[in-house]
Amino acid sequence: METDYLKLFRQNLHKQPELSGSEKNTAKTIASELKKYNPSKIITNLAGFGVIAIFDSNKKGKTIVFRAELDALPIQETNTFPHASKTSHVSHKCGHDGHSTILIGLAQALQKNPLKKGSVVLLFQPAEETGQGAKAILQETKFTNLKPDFVFALHNVPSYKKGTIICKPDTFTPSVVSLAITLKGKTSHAAEPEHGINPDLALHELIYKIKMLANPNQSKEDFSTIATVYACLGSKDYGISAGEGELHFTIRTWTPKQLEILKQAIKNLTQEVCSIHNLNFEIDWFQEFSANRNNQDAFDIIESAAKSNHFEFINKEHPFKWGEDFGLFTQHYKGAMFGLGAGTETPALHNPDYDFPDDITSYGVTMFHTILKLIYA
């Protein structure tokens, strides 16, 4: 494994981050690099700027997909090292640069150790952070015609010792959705608020009552978190009593069923509160991520791969609470995602000082390559 080369490649990606749906140059860099390893076929511009490299043995066998992500986040990087982001207010704060580099390392391994049967698909997916990328890929016949037998992915996880493999069967990441509630009343002179309809009390009531719908007990099937992420009322015009307000929340549940229950409860609650306060309202739902359900067979393969390499393995009791659109793949194909420990001192994901630790790249490449060996054994 060319660890120094992969480190430089990853750091080059880190310097030039691109937001979801705009990964044109990142995809171009990936496709150019993949050509060096002589895949059977490269597909570009998939569901936007997605890239696929197919390594085909031309002999009957299973088709295995390994997926990484291309997009960065709208976060200003605070790091000052030489490979810091060169784009203002955009940076790789989830480690997608590292995940993509791991697949490049797997491409190197496949060139040195050609497949004896079956085929391997390296999928570099756009727009994971917005929840749109997996959905778009699954609508592409260029992907679905490959008819994968298994799909695998990993995600680096700070707060775990470097190189630790973290997994669990069934729900690995939750169902997630965000929503915006717009409250519409009527402005009036601030001296005569009684002549208008101010959404202030309704906004206060909704925050309290919606938050009370959450169940923070991770051991329960109906677990949920509800985070208030944005609130706005009126404008900074002190002669005007507000006539409009806005509330945004993000909801997470272990199961799709519980998510639908909460969505209906929030709709009913909003309707009830707005009726009392004589307000009109609109609810918009967006950035939805399906729960990632790890297939038992795929989980067993991941566990065997970790233990055969003497990597520390943790069978996690509860799912992680962050969303992942890889869940859409596991709805359609047998597959699983696992966590890769990024270090106990590594800043948390989406923090402005986070950086993917290059010394865990080899663990990711080794895990993916071992998974292949176990499936094709």
Rank of each mutant, 00 (worst) to 15 (best):
Y5I: 09
L6D: 09
F9Q: 04
F9I: 09
R10C: 04
H14K: 02
K15I: 08
L19V: 00
S20H: 03
E23R: 15
K28F: 00
T29N: 10
N38G: 00
S40W: 03
I43M: 01
D56P: 08
I64R: 05
V65D: 00
F66E: 09
D71V: 03
A72K: 13
I75S: 07
Q76V: 11
E77K: 08
T78P: 11
T78W: 15
T78F: 08
P82K: 15
T87N: 08
S88R: 15
S91M: 07
D97K: 04
T101E: 03
L103Y: 02
G105Y: 08
A109E: 14
Q111V: 03
N113W: 09
P114G: 03
F124E: 07
Q125M: 02
A127M: 05
A134K: 12
Q139F: 00
K142D: 03
N156I: 13
P158A: 12
Y160K: 12
Y160T: 02
K161M: 07
K161F: 08
V176Y: 02
V177T: 14
T182S: 04
N215P: 13
P216D: 07
D222P: 03
I226W: 12
I226L: 11
C232I: 13
S235H: 05
K236G: 01
Y238C: 05
Y238T: 10
I240D: 06
S241L: 02
H248Q: 09
T255K: 06
Q258V: 09
I261R: 14
Q264L: 12
I266W: 01
I266A: 02
N268R: 11
L269W: 09
Q271W: 02
C274W: 06
F281W: 14
N295C: 00
Q296R: 04
Q296Y: 10
D297R: 02
D297K: 08
K307R: 14
K307T: 14
F311E: 02
E312W: 06
P319R: 00
W322E: 14
G323K: 00
F326M: 06
L328R: 15
Q331T: 06
G335W: 06
G335H: 02
G341W: 15
G343V: 00
P347Q: 00
P357K: 10
D358G: 00
D358M: 00
S362V: 15
Y363A: 15
V365I: 12
Y376W: 09
Y376T: 12
A377H: 14
